[in-house]
Amino acid sequence: MMNATSTASTLSAENVSVWFGERQVLQDVNLVFPANQVTALIGPSGCGKSTFLRTLNRMHELIPSAGLAGRVLLDGQDIYDPSMDAVDVRIKIGMVFQKPNPFPTMSIKENILSGLKLSGRKITDADELVETSLRRASIWNEVKDRLGDQALSLSGGQQQRLCIARSLAMNPEVLLMDEPCSALDPGSTRRIEETIQELSASMTIVIVTHNMQQAQRVSDQTAFFLADENTPGGVVEFGSTENVFNQPIDPRTNDYVNGHFG
């Protein structure tokens, strides 16, 4: 059933700097996301971690004033290379948003298949793909009898897992998650965390979170972002989650993970 055929890829950011208009919000971010690892991006609000996440699958460029320098490599290939198509990049690198955003005009089943339809790919075995995707997002049992229902009839937590399943149906190599649990209750949060653990067997995951415990529970490595007043944000510390939380090198990391600010 869980035929995870997708091959996870290594994603890396080299000297990524980001601007909105004249304002620089990120400076020289260097991070490597190894295949099959879960990386947590933590840091106070406004430090640019969500913005950074959006540069990883070229969603950043949809903001009119956006600017970027540096390279983002997917298995060694620059996704911003002129020969790369943004659409192809987004097919390989999926994304789950902060707020659940299922397509309201579609049923649960149609939502799962929407990615294939929208990217113009052929659907060979729709029923099996729907079941596999929903199972991988651990929501199959709750919705298997109502696949034709409107997606909005689900609860918030179910909607978010539906959105994860929708991304999984595309069989991405990398999955980006932007605070996927911030709008959810503890029960739904736990289930999504379990899902993340299972998914890391078949893909590379990058997750932005404000929840320290969550970062510790789900991630293998952690990057701590910080932006001082009126200066662009950047990575203060990057290493294994174990080290970042228990033996941080930078005193600011220590203050943040122990709840002294932010």
Binding site: G94, K99, N101, G115
Partner: peptide, 12 residues
């Protein structure tokens, strides 16, 4: 959000 979700799925 909806348009963003569609674009993130690789929609032109």
């Amino acid at each position: 959000d909806l348009r963003m979700a569609a674009l993130a799925l690789g929609a032109p």
